[in-house]
């Protein structure tokens, strides 16, 4: 029974991994679309963090499922840990630099196709 389950898992593993990779890539594209369309710098930062967390996690889970051996799984896990330790630090550094330089965030509800005069883009 258990061996059957393990066999089934090994059969289905590459497909599951590919599906996770595709999911992660789609999440990444969604985050990037957010980076393109959000109106000011601070809101773009939030969209970029989707890539860093959900997209990277899904992609790396997919890679781990497709891995041929434990060494590869360990490498994937190391990349994941590094991304999760460094990406908030980098985000905070960028946000802090912008804040210190005096970049003012947009505050209040935005929506319904308003055009933001500061960056001159369609919302």
């Amino acid at each position: 029974m258990l061996t059957d389950a393990i066999e089934f898992f090994h059969l289905v593993r590459p497909w599951l991994g590919g599906a996770f990779c595709l999911l992660g890539a789609v999440l990444t594209v969604i985050g990037t679309a957010g980076v393109l369309r959000f109106p000011d710098f601070y809101t773009r930062l939030h969209a970029a963090s989707i890539t860093d967390t959900a997209g990277a996690t899904a992609l790396l889970i997919g890679m781990g499922l497709m891995a041929p051996g434990w060494v590869v799984v360990a490498k994937v896990a190391a990349i994941w840990v590094f991304l999760f330790l460094t990406s908030p630090t980098a985000s905070h550094a960028i946000a802090n630099a912008a804040h210190v330089a005096g970049l003012e965030p947009l505050i209040g509800r935005l929506g319904r196709g308003e055009v933001d005069p500061a960056s001159g883009e369609e919302a």
Binding site: A25, V35, R44, A48, L59, V76, I79, I94
Partner: peptide, 28 residues
């Protein structure tokens, strides 16, 4: 976004995110 980003920080953010995506692309 990196090419047209209105402020310097948008560009840095785009380049940083670009790097994360490059890591994922290399693995993939």
């Amino acid at each position: 976004r990196a090419l047209m980003g209105p402020t310097l920080y948008d560009r840095v953010l785009a380049v940083n995110s670009f790097g994360t995506k490059t890591v994922l692309l290399l693995g993939l």
